[in-house]
Design a protein around this nucleic acid. Structure first.
Lengths: 344, 344
DNA sequence: ACGCGCGATGTTGACGTCAACATCGACGGC
DNA sequence: GCCGTCGATGTTGACGTCAACATCGCGCGT
């Protein structure tokens, strides 16, 4: 079963012309049937559909895209699917795009180096897409100093206002405040913070909002520990926190790091929430089954995905952009990892 | 900034002709520069590249695909990105495809109903792809009774031999045996099993191999509990296992359910691994930080992704298929959730 | 000095689809 | 019975790219 015909050309599927010939109609009539136009006689329609089935015809989307001037496809640049948030957002974007009749073109950035990012962007320039959603942390964009191809609509899912593109993201500020005030409300003197990588805008926002909330309440601001979103980094930071008896409440910038922190606390025999209360951020499915089940800030990934797709499609069709950044509210999910401050 | 020109047509980006006009050369020369052919004078090349930059030219991939008869893109059908294994495999596929110069077209199945699957498949028929990798559990395929468009190369990532397509997957049999024998080797009289959904071929393989291993060693085969891959289902099954004093060793079909089981065991005051040993399957990043850190079977998702892409590309180019199913070896990662059987 | 070869560049047409326009026949109103 | 109308169908050309072929000019060998 060779993939080339006798002339050495790549074998192609049947085209409209083939279907037309078999059904004894013109190509245009086949086109009308394929596109569900109603001005075709029922008998003719049946004949054409039978011919399509017999030949295994499927419309050539390249020709269609060329003809129509649009791909009905959006590119999504992702760095890696290891982080829960990215994965979940991608899922939501894919769903929203499909519902809106757009296909998803996944463009992975192969590694963290600038050249890889640049590379992904230039690959993207050649991709069959009408617009792009960027799901990598925008700082990386900065460092790579890349210009996207001019005229390609773009939406960034991140928490920076530094870009010329529309932005959609969880309201990090509000979420972090929620977490911090929850802990203060339980009577803790102050709240420690295990933050995400300094290069992340989202992590930066969460950290700043945590700090602002403490100051608003006239509390002392303890030193920040930085992780890199992984459970391992949370564990390592946790080993330092666990030995500090002053620590009674920690706001962790994501659930994965919180898991590592919980492990470190267990290893040092510190009870959660008896000795230390912990709040995470994200609300992964697993968080409800951590030991103890984790109190956390739930991000609404579905809305983030839907809103970014909507914004992109609007941009594609109307050329609109430069809206205000869209912030999607987060909410607190109270479980067993937080409790009243211990008596001294 | 309207998206249509004065004639009401969708605005398109500049074409080769525009670049050619600006650079004062023919379209063909622009094509040669765009494709990095070497038979272009250095001076001319520079002039053309300058014109490209000035106009923001990017090649029209629809025209290119039409002309060349291939899209250089592969479709990946996924059901949902909630499960760790799917996500990780997708990541590996995307990476492998990119390295091989193929783009990824992500086609989500919106829900579990047959019509949604059928729908996804027919959408796929219209997608600009040269081949398809199916990442949903193949039983769903069965139920939907769908025929993929004839002539579209397909690879299935699953553990069934029921399909007419090449198959790549983790060696479930070997992985499950590894887990079971690890527990028997620690002196446990027998091993209980918390399995995945009965509709999953992978779950079925793991269950059968666990059973066969027990029988090989002349052990009693306890009743199986079924989950649905989620931590919540693991927790629910775990509540039943935790009250049964006979249970000293459990092989869980994935890490997420194992997490739920661990929680249930903690809630019932059963020590892990003192009273009960637990082995998972997958080795998600988080598993190393469960409490206690989880002994588990590590799947080699990178190889699964790479091999399925390779198989698909081979099929696309040579029309080869019907190879033997490819099974990728798994390995045991020993952590703290398993230990010697308790003395009675 | 003549022609041959070769590298650089130009010209043509085809890939598959679909909007716009053209055609054709039937039917109804007068 | 004539014409206008409308629905069904056919014909043409353009979307942007690139392989194949054509052309042009320069340098080198004899």
């Amino acid at each position: 079963m060779p993939a080339e015909d006798s002339a050495g050309r790549r074998r192609r599927g049947p085209s409209m012309a083939d279907v037309a010939r078999l059904a004894g109609v013109s190509g245009q009539t086949v086109s009308r049937v394929a596109n569900d136009r109603n001005n075709v006689d029922a008998v003719t329609r049946d004949r054409v559909q039978a011919a399509m089935r017999q030949l295994g015809y499927r419309p050539n989307s390249a020709a269609r895209a060329l003809r129509n001037g649009e791909y009905r496809s959006i590119g999504v640049i992702v760095f890696e699917l290891h982080s829960f948030g990215t994965t979940r957002t991608l899922d939501a974007i894919a769903t929203a795009a499909t519902i809106s009749g757009y296909a998803i073109n996944l463009v992975p950035v192969l590694d963290v180096t600038q050249s890889a990012v640049t590379n992904a962007f230039s690959r993207l320039g050649e991709q069959a897409v009408d617009g792009v959603i960027i799901l990598i942390e925008a700082h990386t964009l900065d460092e790579a100093g890349v210009r996207l191809p001019h005229g390609l609509p773009v939406v960034v899912v991140d928490s920076s206002a530094h870009y010329d593109y529309p932005i959609v993201d969880t309201d990090q500020r509000q979420g972090a405040r929620l977490a911090t005030e929850h802990l203060l409300g339980l009577g803790h003197a102050t709240v420690w913070h295990l933050g995400g990588p300094p290069t992340s805008f989202a992590a930066d926002r969460r950290r700043r909002s945590w700090e602002a909330t403490l100051l608003d309440h006239g509390r002392e601001v303890p030193p920040v520990l930085d992780g890199d979103w992984t459970a391992t980094s949370g564990y390592e930071a946790g080993r330092r926190l666990a030995t500090n008896a002053e620590v009674t409440a920690v706001f962790v910038a994501n659930d994965q790091m919180a898991l590592g922190l919980l492990r470190a606390l267990h290893e040092h025999g510190r009870d959660v929430p008896g000795d230390v209360s912990v709040v995470g951020f994200d609300d992964m499915e697993e968080s409800a089954h951590f030991w103890p089940p984790l109190t956390t800030i739930r991000q609404n990934f579905v809305d983030v995905g839907r809103l970014s797709v909507d914004a992109l499609i609007r941009e594609i069709h109307a050329g609109e952009h430069h809206h205000e950044p869209v912030a999607v509210a987060a909410k607190l999910v109270h479980r067993s990892s937080t409790g009243p401050a211990p008596h001294r």
